[in-house]
Design a protein around this nucleic acid. Sequence first.
DNA 1: GTGGTCTAGACCACG
DNA 2: GTGGTCTAGACCACC
Lengths: 122, 122, 122, 122
Amino acid sequence: MQFNTTEPIYLQIVSHIHHLILTGRWGDGERVPSVRDLAVELEVNPNTVVRSYTLLQEQGVFENQRGIGYFTAKDAGKRVKSMRRQAFFEEELPALIKTMKSLDLSVEELVEHLGAMHETNI
Amino acid sequence: MQFNTTEPIYLQIVSHIHHLILTGRWGDGERVPSVRDLAVELEVNPNTVVRSYTLLQEQGVFENQRGIGYFTAKDAGKRVKSMRRQAFFEEELPALIKTMKSLDLSVEELVEHLGAMHETNI
Amino acid sequence: MQFNTTEPIYLQIVSHIHHLILTGRWGDGERVPSVRDLAVELEVNPNTVVRSYTLLQEQGVFENQRGIGYFTAKDAGKRVKSMRRQAFFEEELPALIKTMKSLDLSVEELVEHLGAMHETNI
Amino acid sequence: MQFNTTEPIYLQIVSHIHHLILTGRWGDGERVPSVRDLAVELEVNPNTVVRSYTLLQEQGVFENQRGIGYFTAKDAGKRVKSMRRQAFFEEELPALIKTMKSLDLSVEELVEHLGAMHETNI
DNA sequence: GTGGTCTAGACCACG
DNA sequence: GTGGTCTAGACCACC
């Protein structure tokens, strides 16, 4: 996996796992890779994965069974989806509006570009 | 001016100045406050302002006359606008599309929320 | 390392590192000393080294892995060489020609002196 | 007159005057413009011209008659020429050799480029 | 451990 | 007066 240099790696990993859960590749209540294994797979320091898992646990997306490993929560999918929607509407959207205003961009223009890019990315 | 704690102050200052230029409060080719003056006004260390001004100069938004002070470039307004638009279309928009997809949000839904929030913020 | 008093130290460090790369003592993609270590070695404030490293990164000569350290770029040698050649042909050479003209120096005379000095310096 | 932003203006003025003397436009023993006049002509702070004139006086190229003004020395032309030649051979030439070595440039290559540029600049 | 940022304070060259 | 550089020392996020 490629990481960009600006955002902290452990947060990028969290986003990545959110995505795996949203798309169902990591189902609810399933066991997830051990810290070590994921660290090897992602070519990352184990401490970094620990940090990601800890954050996911705080979010209620992961659960920890001592001596056994980490599992996704029973309602992991639902949980991630609502978290992300909330973050989207309360943080990303206001920021979007602010930059659109400062750049004199109308909603119409946005939709236009959005439509064009949306298709090419399918 | 209030600074949030996550983003570096000198970058927040740069964004702030971009905004002043975009809204025309700092016109093209005008002299800007001296490093010391702005530092006092923003209650910040002069070195921090130096860093912001240096970055703005590298962006071609500021110019420098030694022993005299800093000035906005002749085409500062145009320059900032194109920089920000480019950043928007090449970075923010793709990110927006990605999150919309992962949240199963349609363009229509986005526009709806956008319209609602847009008005409340006037 | 000795620094002359006119040119900023952080630029002298950059030139020094360019030289280390050009002569292959710092190979492509290698890890370079940490900011603190080099600061100790050069008897200089860490901030000064930070400034040099940051500039080298902007030049694409260095790359940065967070929490790990700085590395020379994969094409560091090539990059430095082309940068310095360009600077030579676009800046130093025109200046040379100008002074030669104002001093009534012919190319032949230059070559003569050049040859003499070249040998003594071996 | 256009000034580049890196070299101090007062030094650029000194070089400019050297050039005027070398080409005979300012003859030996002639009166030179007053500080004020030259400052107006060059669109520069009078203090800056003072600094240039002072340096020229220290070099023995100018002489000062109090209450009257500045004059070029009787041997100004000769003096400037020898100064510049000395500077060239003792400073610029060694620097040239050093950069040529670090860039693996042979004297032949230099001459080649020199010839090409020399003609286009006539 | 690594780099990134910020403050405080100083000195300098320049206009 | 202006900006440019440097030191000293601190705190932080990150790996």
